[in-house]
């Protein structure tokens, strides 16, 4: 397999791992899968870096490894383990089976959309590009279909990984500062979400987004 094929294949794995993140029963379990997924992302960066001969992607990979494989999952796993909501159950609005089918549909649609792009940078990596877009929307779907607010945080992380991958695929040559800015923002976002979720759990004793409906109209 050529370098770009490896990139494409690894991108496919991203969807699989994100499915695991979404389908996992416990948020702390999801955190582990998220670390796995980020590891795949790092691998994509490295593979892409070697395939397109773009050394700055190694820097990205390193940054992503520190933040996404280590930092964020550790924060999540440690804080989410302490939160619980007995009444919530699995907190899924749709069953895992439908989730998987949804993922398939999303990938299909994104493939169709991406097939129209004529950008030269996208030539060899259209599948991966489609996956990155699909990954983004899959994250969105996770936020919409999960009642557990902790799962929603994961949804955000998945979206963020998706756009990150697009950035790397299409614009691997961006200044490093850009990448660092984006990553830092994402880490802060997760930290604040975690803090807020903890406060909500402490104050309202729930993790169920459907319980957060006092404000209406």
């Amino acid at each position: 397999m050529s370098g770009l094929q490896i990139v494409n294949g690894l991108a496919g794995l991203l969807i699989v791992t994100s499915l695991l993140v979404v389908v996992a029963r416990k948020p702390s379990q999801s955190a582990k899968f998220y670390a796995l997924q980020s590891l795949v992302l790092v691998a994509v960066f490295v593979a892409l870096g070697s395939a397109t001969n773009a050394p700055q992607l190694y820097v990205w990979a390193a940054v992503a490894f520190v933040t996404k494989v280590v930092l964020v999952p550790v924060i999540m796993a440690r804080s989410f383990g302490r939160l619980s909501d007995e009444r919530l159950g699995s907190g899924e609005r749709i069953s895992p089976a439908v989730t998987v089918l949804l993922a398939a549909v999303v990938v299909l649609l994104c493939t169709l959309i991406i097939s129209g792009v004529t950008l030269p940078a996208a030539a060899g990596i259209k599948p991966a590009l489609a996956i990155s877009l699909a990954h983004f929307f899959f994250g969105l779907a996770c936020i919409v279909t999960q009642r557990n607010i902790l799962k929603q945080v994961f949804g955000y992380c998945l979206m963020e990984n998706g756009s990150h991958l697009t950035l790397a695929l299409l614009a691997g040559s961006a200044p490093e500062l850009v990448e660092i800015g984006i990553t830092t923002d994402a880490v802060f976002a997760v930290v604040i979400m975690v803090i807020l979720a903890t406060q909500i759990n402490r104050k309202l004793a729930t993790l169920d987004a459907d319980q957060l409906t006092t404000l209406k109209g």
């Binding site: 877009l133 983004f136 994250g139 969105l140 936020i143 607010i149 929603q152 949804g155 955000y156 979206m159 963020e160 998706g162 756009s163 697009t166 984006i182 976002a189 604040i192 979400m193 807020l196 979720a197 406060q199 909500i200 104050k203 309202l204 957060l212 409906t213 006092t214 404000l215």
Partner: peptide
Amino acid sequence: GTSLEAAWKYLIICSVGVAFGLY
């Protein structure tokens, strides 16, 4: 409770929205 709820919605919806912006 209500202000935390509002903050959560704000955070999630805007983060998600702004993720579109990133894209």
